[in-house]
Design a protein around this nucleic acid. Structure first.
Lengths: 341, 341
DNA sequence: ATGAAAGCGCTAACAA
DNA sequence: TTGTTAGCGCTTTCAT
């Protein structure tokens, strides 16, 4: 049978309380006592029973991570980091997928997890500020992603305007002038990346050309490909650069360009967003905005911990990002390998 | 405060036991009683406390899923399915990553999770049959992946020999004769995919050419690219087809071929293994062996459930797969789009 | 600084 | 068929 706290106490010749004190790092324990207890723990091979601990502490011991889909590489990578950050707080992570379904997203806000979890890290695709504001569930919540939340809950983000601006400026620095965007539309409220796109162009005195902007309704490669197909069919002269909302979309865009006989980056330079693992395996490798995912995860978990301790002023938490330049903007004929690889 | 079982009982005017019976689907409950209790549950908004339930039941309520890396798309996708299958058994999934580190893999066998979990789904990259046989931890264990396990534990797999055979036969059916393999080596014990490769060639009277086989030491795209570079540097005539151990490796191989001025599939057809989500976004889209991941996950979780109920004859559990044909073997100049997309 | 004992919310003998 | 009650293993007042 598995050793319990009492077994350790018996072995060390002390009470359960003392063992508990040692385990939980209570300060007022003599060094000798601590050593004796630790030895006993080691001898009997004690491991705390988390169900019992959580029951006694009145917490669930787990948090929910709600993402659109785990097999979307950005979220896979993000989840990885959340798992690591949560583990340090003694939390197990219950991953839930919404598959971009508005109903499922609403269920999260409605308390679908009941009080089963100590907190929720939520990356919404559909629900907006109003729905979030009106939620009744009191479970600590932290939001991720580009959608604005107007201070209704903690929100961990990168500065999407600045990031998009940086990506587009990079294209302009390369001498490109007809810079398209897949994934807009420009001007609709809250699309920060579109804002950065427009800002970068405007600063150089280039007007935003609506013909060079095609919105997509999901982040899938297929959508990106179709969008690029549509744009090319419509234009007499193709763009000389494309800024894509996500890397996955960018991969589809590159497919489309390739199938239309356009070379990347020679004819058209392409920048993505997210820096998914595949950006180094694609042909050409993909220039992309790389958000500091580890920081996103860390801040999200820290937010939940703070909320659990009573903190309750919703905060906007900003984390870093960088532009990683690879072949899709820097290569010659797709045959050179830049250092960034 | 969160409603408890007692609150439901009070509301319904019955005892806790009756409520518990209803919740746990005990058979001998009158319809009227059941309805009354369900109504009460609904009225007070009761949700069971899992810590308490698990403590009382003497189980942890969670299983561990140990994979090399969650942001490798095959494992991301697999994890997604495991989450779903486990949820149906009332299990939360604690995902752990080994990053292919032999030490971490051994820690899993040594009981790093203590008795913290009710079972372990383990996808090993390094540890072998012997180490698994010698483990002392009694936690139910089920293994995934190609590595053979000689009946030391439950093992969920596809028939890797048949799958590789199918992939290579497909290449031969296309008229290719110099079929290379990235990820061997042929003949080393237990590499089922290599076996299938050799079998398909032999059946057609083609000898395995050692010059056309290059092993890789990880499944990363970079490795595949380097391996293909090496092969091309060595050969006077390039192969006309390549069978790759994984899709990720295949992406790297395609990069290498492209950078050497070889067209896929015109000059060289490429088949991957795993059918990761990106195989439809790459240029060209990737022909691949697609294991029935949902079945893998389902069987793995079922295995743990069976072991927990006392079953203990290690079983080899086989699940299905299929070959998905896409542009990397079927396209013309990479410009045609086959129906398989 | 350490010990004794009362819960945490649920399940499952055992009774009725 | 339904009720009573003793744990499950841990934390945590409250004493000492």
């Amino acid at each position: 049978m598995r050793p319990r706290l009492q077994d350790v106490a018996d072995r060390a010749g002390v009470s359960m309380k003392t063992v508990s004190n040692v385990i939980n790092g209570y300060v007022h324990v003599s060094e000798a006592m601590r050593a004796k207890v630790l030895a006993a723990i080691d001898e009997v091979g004690y491991e705390p029973n988390l169900s019992a601990r959580n029951l006694a502490r009145g917490r669930a011991g787990m948090i929910a991570l709600v993402v659109p889909q785990l097999d979307m590489p950005y979220f896979a990578s993000l989840s990885m980091h959340v798992l690591e950050a949560a583990e340090k707080q003694g939390w197990v992570v219950l991953i839930q997928q919404t598959r971009g379904d508005a109903e499922k997203e609403r269920a999260v806000l409605a308390g679908r997890f009941g009080q089963r979890v100590d907190g929720i890290v939520f990356s919404p695709l559909r629900v907006g500020t109003d729905e979030i504001r009106q939620r009744r569930d009191r479970t600590p919540l932290v939001l991720l992603g580009e959608r604005p939340v107007d201070g209704v809950a903690d929100h961990v983000v990168i500065d999407n305007v600045a990031a998009a601006d940086l990506a587009v400026s990079h294209l302009l620095d390369l001498g490109r002038r007809r810079v398209a965007m897949i994934g807009g539309p420009v001007g609709s409220t809250g699309t920060h990346r579109s804002e950065g796109y427009a800002a970068a162009l405007t600063r150089r005195g280039i007007a935003v050309d609506p013909d060079l902007v095609v919105p997509v309704h999901s982040n899938r490669g297929e959508e990106g490909e179709a969008a690029m197909d549509a744009m090319l069919a419509r234009l007499d002269t193709p763009p000389d650069a494309v800024f894509c909302m996500t890397d996955w979309v960018a991969l589809g865009v590159i497919r489309s360009l390739h199938l239309h006989g356009l070379r990347v980056p020679d004819d058209v330079a392409v920048v993505g967003f997210d820096d998914i693992p595949y950006s180094t395996a694609s042909t050409p490798t993909l220039t992309s905005i790389s958000p500091d995912r580890a920081a996103v995860a860390r801040e999200a978990v820290a937010s939940l911990a703070a909320q659990q301790k009573g903190e309750h002023e919703p905060r906007e938490i900003e984390v870093g990002f960088e532009l990683v330049v690879r072949e899709s903007t820097a290569g010659g004929a797709g045959l050179r390998r830049p250092a960034g690889r």
